[in-house]
Amino acid sequence: MFGSKKAPIFTEQVETVIGKETRIVGTVSGNGTLRIDGQLEGELDITGDLIVGESAHLQAKVKANNITIAGSVVGNVDAAQRLELAPTARLQGDIKVSALVIGEGAVFKGACEMRAEEAPRGKT
């Protein structure tokens, strides 16, 4: 229980960084934690965590475990556990999360669906 509770919150080290000057068109999938600072068009489906940097531009359908967004994302987002929108985030699309954190200044436009029964109690 302890491990499973801790693991989703970014304890793993970032395995992949997609740099600022990188643009990917297509589908990205994997298991490790991923950080994007560049641009992505297409689809992103990983079982690990996802960090979308301030300079990132995503035009994709995103699915990950825990997701932190500081850049701009256009597309539906599906976080298995938690989605956090940093103050610099711009998100346009429907989301499906267990827990949601939205920082002051973040822009979110879309529908929100929450997995009520799976929501971790201690987290907001």
């Binding site: 970032v14 600072d37 960090i51 940097g53 301030e54 932190t68 850049g71 940093a86 985030a89």
Partner: peptide, 11 residues
């Protein structure tokens, strides 16, 4: 040498 934040801040 990269310092990658586990949040939105720049690398």
């Amino acid at each position: 040498l990269m310092v990658i934040p586990h949040h939105g801040k720049t690398v």
